[in-house]
Design a protein around this nucleic acid. Sequence first.
RNA 1: GUCCCCUUCGUCUAGCCCGGCCCAGGACACCGCCCUUUCACGGCGGCGACACCGGUUCAAAUCCGGUAGGGGACGCCA
Length: 466
Amino acid sequence: MSELRVRFAPSPTGYLHVGGARTALFNWLLAKKQGGTFILRIEDTDVERSTKESVDAILDGMKWLGLEWNEGPFFQSDYFPLYKEYVQKLLDAGKAYKCYCSAEVLDAKRELAMKEGRKPKYDGTCRERSDQPEGPYVIRFKAPRDGATSFDDLIKGTITFPNEELDDLIIQRTDGTPTYNFCVVIDDATMKITTVIRGDDHVNNTPRQVQLYEALGFPVPQFAHVPMILGSDKARLSKRHGATSVIAYRDMGYLPEALMNYLVRLGWSCGDDEIFSRAEMVQKFDIGSIGRSASVFDPDKLNWLNAHYIKSCDPERLAHLLLPHLSSREITTLGGPDLVAVVKTLQERAQTLEEMAERAVFYYNAPTSYDDAALAKFDSSHLLAVFAAVTAKLAAVDVPDVSPIDALFKVVCSENGWKMGQVGQPVRIALSGGTQAPGIAEIVVVLGGTETIRRIEKMQGYLSGK
RNA sequence: GUCCCCUUCGUCUAGCCCGGCCCAGGACACCGCCCUUUCACGGCGGCGACACCGGUUCAAAUCCGGUAGGGGACGCCA
């Protein structure tokens, strides 16, 4: 184990979204690569908005992706006494003070500042006051007013903020609970986090946190701020761009390794490589190769990766993963063709498990209607002749394998002077109802001789009834 | 508005630190051709970008300055 300690610290106010998942992934990758420790911490200091459901949803998402953590989950709500202790330390050291300004007054001042084009920040009304009036108060950190605070970001380089831009932030609310910026510092310090990898939207918080580390006498960790993920319109990714929840991608039929691969390549690269197994991404990951700019989430590329992983997936596992997508269509595989065999015929032609399930339906439910437009390309005497010839041949053989069936169709063609298209397509429609399906011999083998003949006969009946 | 960050094909990106190998490479998407009993897969090819303006230099995507555009933050949310 190396000294490296990283953490993923989501707030449980919703599910695990792709942005969070990518941040978690980068943390996990670095820990794995360096043999460090990956800690999961739930930031639930906002008791109002935090829910148990969200905690579970986040944990589910991480488990599905295989982002296993070494320590935690820790809940900030369990550490309120600890935070209090440090607030008191700051108070005792004269590095924090009580502020009696009401939220209303503060809001009004903020609004006014905005309107006048000034940066809205606390004006320091209570900073030097010595009286101790009755009434509610918050506790503010007494931030340095001159100079500048800077840090070396592993991704963005040195970032410097003039201290006059930073105001005295509230570290404890009126109700006595600590605030986020304070808790993170205490937690990251006490958990001995060495590298903080988090979203870009936190860079503005970082200088305040650095000041807090220094005031508390803690070593300042390294920071790495990863750029945001945007929607196709370049606005921050949100629900209106489509699914953002990791679990939603599972439900839409994406493989976890596909999402992982997509996410790792979003904002990070290793030469021209596109496909990364877990082991490869761990081995090749390098925090310095994370790009500095935001990236747009591209569902098309995710689809491509998913198709790739479906193609190379073990059919047994795929069949297992496909089950829920089948049952949501009220399809039972009992008494029908072997699902693994079905999956093998569909692997090359599906981008998601949902799509695969849709394409698998006909194997279990014989078509109840046919693609008449496709049928209309042949006249019915031809169709009837084809079906008669095919069933005659089929009835006489076993259907053990694809190649004899292919041969059988070739014989039917040559004996009657037909082209493959004139035979295959009608049979395909009879068996699947439509024109988009696996190879005809594959279908016949999976369905079996008896069922194949039954379906062709059904089609013959349909034709003569017209 | 103020501060911080960012800017290579439609998208993800390589190259940038250590200028010439880059009239910029790969991938997704798109288009075409081939394969083919359908749909796909696959193969081959095409389209397509250094935000802009100045400067430094024999030479700039790469260095410097400015401009524009985009994003983020500005909460007793995290």
